[in-house]
């Protein structure tokens, strides 16, 4: 259970823990929601270091993919994390294997204070890394007693990331952290993620290609419930024709998709 998470007390910045080449295998994952076949055989790998960006137009199933990996939405197919299958596990067990999740739209608990949101993430027998998260997001330390619902969008995003980082994780799933943030806040969030990614591999869903360019080493592109492109980020972003066909934008300008 939590043994796996406790076994890798990764600290930032820090001691590189030996990571396997491929950390997460996703094979032939299907998911249906409300009668619609949303994921239609998703296959990809996430390497054990750096940021892997999952791209695609709105509504292709990126969020659903993350939720399927975590068992939040029912799925078929196999997902292997660090050599162990995650199939059939309840969501909380998947998380305790050492995955941190930063959902789309933050999903902080609005009625709870910042401190309570973080305290909720604490686990028995695992020392919470408050020094780490408050070092990354000093703003949160000052707002411990504020209700999370009254935080600004950017602060909520910080809290959501902090919550996922409070326990040592071996992989972070981060869903559109830049959504709805001003350019300056996007910059801050990207900087924070870059620091985090030095130490923990990240699977990042992102529409902002500028952010992808700064962070990602690999990209996966989804269309119609499948992965249609996988490869190095630099090559993909340099290929204007490819970004145009797959995402409907030209990456050349670095504009928001």
């Amino acid at each position: 259970m939590s043994a796996g998470a406790a076994a890798s007390p990764a600290r930032l910045p820090g001691a590189a823990v030996a990571q396997p080449a491929i950390l997460l295998h996703v094979r032939d994952v299907h998911a249906r929601l409300g009668g619609a076949h949303i994921l239609q055989g998703v296959d990809f790998d996430v390497p054990g270091r750096g940021v892997t960006a999952l791209l695609g137009r709105n509504g292709v199933g990126k969020t659903t993919t993350l939720r399927a990996i975590l068992g939040i939405v029912p799925r078929s197919g196999t997902v292997t994390f660090d050599g162990q299958p995650l199939d059939g596990l309840a969501t909380f067990r998947v998380i305790l294997r050492g995955i941190g999740y930063v959902p789309e739209d933050r999903d902080v608990f609005a009625g709870l204070t910042v401190a309570e949101n973080l305290r909720l993430a604490e686990r028995r027998g695992v020392p919470p890394r408050y020094d780490l998260v408050f070092d990354l997001f000093p703003d949160l330390a000052a707002r411990r007693r504020q209700a999370a619902g009254t935080l600004s969008g950017g602060q909520q995003q910080m809290l959501s990331i902090a919550r996922a980082l409070l326990n040592p994780a071996r992989l972070l799933l981060v869903d559109e952290p830049s959504k709805g943030l001003s350019p300056r806040l996007v910059g801050e969030t990207v900087a924070a993620l870059a620091r985090i990614a030095e130490d923990i591999p990240v699977l990042l869903v992102e529409q902002n290609l500028a952010a992808v360019r700064k962070l990602a080493e690999h990209v996966l592109v989804m269309a119609e419930g499948r992965i249609v492109h996988a490869g190095p980020a630099a090559d993909f972003l340099a290929d204007a024709a490819l970004t145009q066909t797959l995402l409907g934008v030209s990456a050349g300008t670095g504009a928001q998709a």
Binding site: T91, F92, I95, Y101, D107, F109, L112, R163, N167
Partner: peptide
Amino acid sequence: AGVENRTMVSALG
């Protein structure tokens, strides 16, 4: 927390 969003509670482990 669960009253607000129990999926997110399980997503915290």
